[in-house]
Computed example of a mutant assay.
Amino acid sequence: MPLTFEVIAETLREQIRSGQLKPGDALPTQSALMREFGASSLTVQKAMALLKQDGWAISRPGKGAFVAPHDQADADELDGPSRETAPVGGTVARVEALEQALAEAVEQIADLRARIEALEADDGEPGR
């Protein structure tokens, strides 16, 4: 039985394959997916990371996640026998998705550090 994050990722992949979501379209927000699937934020983040890693989605900082663009060659491949598992964006989109995921992780770490320092300062403890 697939895990919840895999179900979320496959549901979004199917919406992309069917044309319900097209390249450049915004993917549902984290909170919308949490509500729809009764999932935690971490579960939704894992699903989105999987989609980005496989070239199905890209992130735009401050704007959200979007269906990865693909060229005609990629679209032709999707009509073939590998349609079920073929990523939309190809190698370039995968690299971009990984770079974006890394940039987001760095931003999240910086934000967490700032929050910790603020909490420590509020408690009267010296910051790092």
Rank of each mutant, 00 (worst) to 15 (best):
E36G: 01
A39N: 07
A49Y: 01
E10R: 15
E77L: 13
R83C: 07
V7P: 02
A9K: 07
T4L: 15
A75V: 06
D54M: 03
E10N: 13
L27N: 08
R83M: 04
T91L: 14
L21H: 04
L42Y: 09
G19I: 05
A103H: 01
A75C: 02
L98Y: 05
G24M: 03
E99I: 10
K46E: 00
Q45W: 03
S31I: 09
E107P: 00
A32C: 00
E6C: 15
S59Q: 11
M1S: 15
D54C: 02
A73F: 11
E6R: 09
D122H: 10
R60M: 08
D25P: 00
A57I: 06
R128G: 13
K22F: 13
L98N: 11
Q45M: 09
Q45D: 07
G124V: 14
E10G: 04
S31R: 08
G19F: 08
S40N: 05
L42K: 13
T85H: 09
Q108K: 11
R128T: 14
L12P: 01
V67C: 06
A121F: 04
G38K: 07
F5E: 14
F37G: 00
M48I: 15
D71H: 08
S40V: 02
H70V: 03
A93M: 10
P28F: 07
V92Q: 08
M1F: 07
D79C: 05
P2K: 10
D79Q: 07
R128V: 15
L12A: 00
Q15G: 04
P2R: 08
T85I: 15
M34P: 00
D76W: 04
E99A: 06
L50A: 10
P87T: 06
F37A: 07
A68V: 05
T91Q: 08
